[in-house]
Write a protein that binds this DNA or RNA. Structure first.
Length: 460
RNA sequence: GUCACCAUCGUCUAUCCGGUUAGGACAGAGGCCUCUCAAGCCUCCAAGACGGGUUCAAAUCCCGUUGGUGACACCA
């Protein structure tokens, strides 16, 4: 049987990392089994759905490297299909019209709650034989007794007594189908075999199974992946920092690093931490998923991203970094960026920071700001060394990293100095920072003229 | 409140069907390297929520307690 999975976001916000992770799992599952991965936009909430969010979600999917099969499905364009299904349910007696107002239903819930029961609709209109009319909704007739069970891919067997279920609304007064109704019809029509979604949908599953049965559809396999919690084990929220995939893109993350991190959150393959996309497709078969919610750890993501940064081929990394440098206001070529990269790949954990560290090379000597920590090295002795070195460097026949390094070491040895006495002052003079690459590499990158200019300026 | 699900180092996790000095990774501490900052390498710190069973043997199976998460809409 061909495996068909789907990702079905509602365009009421950007793609967040929790959604991103379930999308990755769905995609991986489909690719692993050589099946199909479908994408559906759940926009039945006309008020909150926005085109810009659909665009943003699609962009994030592409950025993550998740391609989908077939056409995009928009629920808002399938209203007729849902209504036909609802009519069938009405005809077969699985559903009925109800004219209770939201206030009345709320009162019923209050009563149930007061009795210590689960708040729900009391079934008042079940047998009133109402027909279509303004202000009326269609509700599902939940069986009086029975237990709904399903074998969840990640949670194992789950069962719920139907007495816990509500005669839920299938069709709203405005004629729009509700989420549970649309999902079941769509998943069936799209031939979805494995419904992988967030943990927050477990309690919808029994209701949907009831709908599948009432409609005479085959019930798919369900898999509910646990939620991602904040580092403090609370629900992920704004105060935990970035939640949307697009924010990570803007912060300079490498998509593969985010994918790797997200997959490892709740899934594992022995002790392995680093997975290429190809490996993931090969290894991810839908098993080994953890059923407990996982806390998001920004530090580990940072580490992974730094790892990917270091392992990205230079030209590719330059292409990714250049836009970030330009965003900082420096009109630079990709080639110029690529030349500087080897000095900095091991010193940055994201593209934004990497770009920032390159800016000192594009800043004119006069505008170079020397940070406080770097000023310490420019004491009297430091400045004196700079003056002497300025002369030696000016006379150096070949201004290459090797030659500069040799000159510096020869000088230190002859004068009986410690390298510490020349390295830090030079670095402060050259890039205005206390930390960074070897001074000979910095000078070679800057070139003789620019290096001497900066040394002169700092010595004065 | 009711229902569902969950519970191994601070965090992510391994330990496929009971027998391990409970392993790895991030973070943290220390060290090596070194002109600095990183990277890299090495070492260390650190866990089976609690209480009962079952068993020769339990982190692993069962029950309970506690704790956590989710859900309880004419949102998805």
């Amino acid at each position: 049987m061909k495996v068909v999975t789907r990702f079905a976001p509602s365009p009421t916000g950007h793609l967040h990392i929790g959604g991103g992770r379930t999308a990755i799992f769905c995609w991986l599952m489909a690719r692993h089994y050589g099946g199909e991965f479908r994408l559906r936009i759940e926009d039945t909430d006309a008020l909150r759905s926005k085109q810009e969010y659909t665009d943003s979600i699609l962009a994030s999917m592409k950025w993550l490297g998740l391609d989908w099969d077939g056409e995009l499905t928009y629920q808002s364009r399938r209203l007729d299909v849902y209504n036909a299904a609802i009519d069938r349910l009405l005809e077969t007696g699985h559903a009925y019209w109800c004219d209770c107002t939201p206030e009345e239903v709320e009162a019923m819930r209050a009563v149930a709650r007061a009795k210590g029961e689960k708040p729900r609709y009391n079934g008042r209109c079940r047998d009133r034989g109402l027909s279509a009319g303004p202000g009326r909704v269609v509700r599902l007739r939940v069986p009086d007794e029975g237990v709904i069970s399903f074998n969840d891919m990640v949670k194992g067997p789950v069962s719920v007594d139907v007495s816990e279920l509500d005669d839920m609304v299938l069709r709203r007064t405005d004629g729009m189908p509700t989420y549970n109704m649309a999902v079941v019809v769509d998943d069936h029509d799209m031939g979805v075999t494995h419904v992988i979604r967030g943990d927050d949908h477990v309690s919808n599953t029994p209701k949907q199974i009831l709908l599948y049965q009432a409609l005479g559809f085959d019930v798919p396999v369900f898999g509910h992946v646990p939620m991602i919690l904040g580092p403090d084990h609370q629900k992920l929220s704004k105060r935990h920092g970035a939640r949307a995939v697009i924010e990570y893109e803007q912060d300079g993350l490498i998509p593969q690093a985010l994918v790797n991190y997200l997959v490892r959150l709740g899934w594992s393959h022995g002790d392995q931490e680093i997975f290429s996309l190809r490996e993931l497709v090969e290894l991810f078969d839908g098993g080994s998923l953890n059923s407990a919610p996982a806390a998001f750890d920004p530090d580990k993501l940072k580490w992974l991203n730094a790892h990917y940064l270091r392992h990205t081929p230079l030209p590719e990394l330059a292409a990714m970094t250049a836009p970030f440098v330009r965003k900082l206001g420096f009109e630079v070529s990709q080639e110029a960026v690529e030349k500087l990269l080897p000095m900095y790949v091991e010193r940055a954990s994201d593209l934004a920071a990497l770009a920032q560290s390159l800016t000192v090379y594009f800043t004119p000597a006069e505008a170079l700001v020397i940070e406080d920590k770097a000023m310490k090295a420019l004491n009297e002795d430091g400045r004196q060394q700079l003056s002497i070195l300025h002369g030696l460097l000016a006379a150096l026949p070949e201004f290459t990293a090797e030659a500069i390094d040799r000159l510096l070491h020869d000088y230190v040895e002859q004068k009986g100095l410690k390298f510490k006495q020349v390295g830090p002052p030079l670095r402060s003079a050259l890039i205005g920072l206390a930390g960074g690459p070897s001074v000979h590499d910095i000078m070679a990158a800057l070139g003789r003229e620019e290096s001497l200019k900066r040394i002169r300026r700092a010595a004065a």
